[in-house]
Design a protein around this nucleic acid. Structure first.
Length: 548
RNA sequence: GCUCUCGUAGUUCAAUGGAUAGAACAGAGCUCUUCUAAGGCUUUGAUGUAGGUUCGAUUCCUGCCGAGAGCACCA
């Protein structure tokens, strides 16, 4: 047990002495770092139950804790309404920050995390980039919390959208625009619509050689492209699932459950009546008997549970699918009661352009690659006067550009929309990916100049006063734990930004390498900072260049 | 029309029901003959509105105003 845990036990024991039957308390960080290292509001929580003055109660708890004589506690303050603030000594921080990341929130738990889900024949656009960035980071954070994770991405390799694109290619429209043109033709022209529906059937039953060829070639081309993007984004998947598989399985399951879970709807469609569960009705098999997106999800649920005995399946999508997912998950729970409580849908906001909504149907979309290129150009411009080789410039630009983009996605809570403005959203200053990367680069630059590599945290000077840098470093494990528990990478981003700021102040405040008696310890702190920041960035899926 | 989400500085975002609502950008002013100035230091500026619950509300509940998404054979 460390000091923090001993302290919680002591407070609860104190409350018990005062007559609370099952006391629970917890320590949080005060609003301002000067107020203390940890704070407890427990006196205010229990004051009412006792009919007591919270301030008096806080003082009594303080007395009790003081009597326990817990090591490393330096001072305890009782403040205004009834806060109890604890200050820990230098040795506490010295020992805590040297410990590796410890969080066992998900120890022994198996996770399936599904994200990105780009569709072949359609652009891998900035919405997929956003989804991938969030999914990859959540995966890394869950792993850091000792969860066992398998990742998957799921592709709509068959369906009307594919038929639209194949129709376009068949009519000599280039690959990039085939989907948009096919979609417009479907909407505007009855003749084309019939052709597309016909193509859709032929793709399903592989009965037409020309269409098969267009389909196979386009599919391969798309997937090769996706792989190269995952490589750039430093994202890997354990499984790739396809709607062509899930669709068949889903169709069978839905048919087997007609009358039990699903019912006949209009025109021979098979539906799930969500109204019985406070939701709305959705079609699972259309009047042609083909599985819709909904039935495919049912099939996917079957595939996933057979392939990996998970405790939690997290599916990450944009929030425009919230209502659909509620219905689909409800239907899945009826079919597979054993999945009850295991399905978790996590949705993020939409990436929007200042000019308006992005739409792949009108062709008004920005591909992930073109965004990366544009940012990369800006970085190259910025480092043009650096004395780096051309290849190093290229590497730095790639790492910094992707770091900047990922940061701008992960910096805010995942539910909200992101208005994407090239000029404003992707700054390299202040709250930004490069700000974090730069702090590590500077720290590493210092460490590379240290000739005496013997510096260690045990070199702490007798008269050392705990710095805010140490206080923040001590919080790292707790932040990773919180980010994991809530699937919320932005807690980590906020923390790392604060940490980088603290290091930058530390850096500007006086020489780190020098003859002073505290130089060795400052070097050791720089080392711990560099490791912690690098680890934190790794959990965001952000790389750090050697120089920048 | 129904359902869901969201309204915080000029702008983009933070804040397990707690203390003086934090940053960044933009604006004003400093700071490189010290380890990378993509940095540091000052400074101006915000909870849509009306109620309710609470010792305490940006946070929970209700009305209103405003924005967005979804609502049967797309995914």
């Amino acid at each position: 047990m460390n000091t923090k845990q001993e302290l919680i036990v002591a407070i609860e024991k104190g409350l018990k002495n005062l007559g609370v039957e099952n006391p629970t308390t917890f320590l949080t960080y005060p609003t301002h770092i000067e107020m203390g290292d940890y704070t407890s509001n427990t006196a205010m929580v229990y004051a009412k139950e006792f009919g007591r003055n919270p301030l008096e109660l806080a003082l009594e708890i303080k007395e009790f804790v003081v009597a326990q004589d817990i090591r490393h506690i330096k001072r305890i303050d009782v403040i205004k309404p009834g806060f109890i603030n604890f200050f820990f000594d230098e040795k506490y921080f010295n020992s805590e920050i040297s410990k590796p990341l410890v969080s066992e929130v998900y120890k022994g738990k198996k996770f399936f995390i599904e994200h990105t889900q780009p569709n072949p024949f359609k652009e891998f656009h900035i919405g997929h980039l956003m989804n991938n960035t969030i999914g990859e980071s959540i995966k890394r954070i869950v792993v850091a919390n000792e969860g066992e994770v398998k990742t998957a991405t799921y592709h709509g390799d068959k369906g009307l959208h594919v038929a639209k694109a194949v129709w376009g290619i068949k009519n000599s429209i280039d690959f990039q625009n085939a989907y948009a043109e096919g979609h417009n033709a479907y909407e505007d022209n009855e003749e084309s619509k019939k052709e597309i529906i016909e193509i859709n059937k032929k793709i399903y039953d592989s009965s037409d050689e020309e269409i098969n060829n267009i389909y196979i070639n386009g599919r391969t081309r798309s997937f090769e492209k996706f792989e190269s993007i995952y490589e750039r984004l430093n994202s890997k998947f354990d499984y790739h699932f396809y709607e062509s598989e899930s669709g068949e399985i889903g169709r069978k399951i839905v048919q087997e459950n007609i009358g039990k879970v699903f019912e006949q709807g209009e025109n021979g469609a098979i539906i799930f009546q969500g109204e019985n569960f406070g939701l709305h009705t959705r079609v699972f098999l259309n009047s042609e008997g083909l599985p819709t997106y909904e039935a495919k999800e049912v099939g996917l649920a079957e595939i996933k549970k057979e392939i990996y005995n998970y405790d939690t399946s997290v599916t990450i999508t944009a929030n425009e699918q919230d209502a659909v997912f509620k219905v689909v998950e409800c239907a899945i729970r009826q079919v597979f009661p054993e999945l009850n409580g295991k399905l978790h849908h996590l949705s993020h906001g939409m990436l929007k352009l200042p000019s308006g909504k992005m739409s792949s149907r009108t062709g008004n979309i920005i591909s992930a690659e073109s965004l990366i290129e544009q940012v990369r150009e800006k970085v190259l411009e910025k480092i043009s006067d650096r004395e780096f080789s051309e290849s190093e410039k290229g590497e730095v630009a790639e790492i910094v550009a992707i770091g900047a983009i990922k940061y701008s996605i992960l910096r805010q809570a995942i539910g909200g929309d992101i208005i994407f403005d090239f000029e404003k959203s992707l700054s390299f200053e202040g709250d930004s990916g490069p700000y974090l990367q730069y702090s590590v680069v500077r720290a590493k630059s210092i460490l590379s100049k240290v000739t005496d590599s013997e510096a260690s945290l045990s070199d702490i000077p007798e008269d050392w006063q705990t710095t805010n840098l140490e206080r923040l470093l001590e919080r790292f494990s707790g932040v990773v734990e919180k980010a994991g528990r809530e699937y919320a990478p932005h807690y980590l981003v906020t923390y790392l930004t604060e940490l980088a700021g603290e290091f930058n102040s530390f850096y500007a405040n006086g020489k780190i390498i020098g003859e002073d008696s505290d130089s060795k310890y400052k070097i050791a702190l720089t080392q711990v900072f560099a490791q912690t920041m690098a680890k934190g960035l790794e959990l965001l899926g952000v790389k750090v260049p050697e120089r920048m």
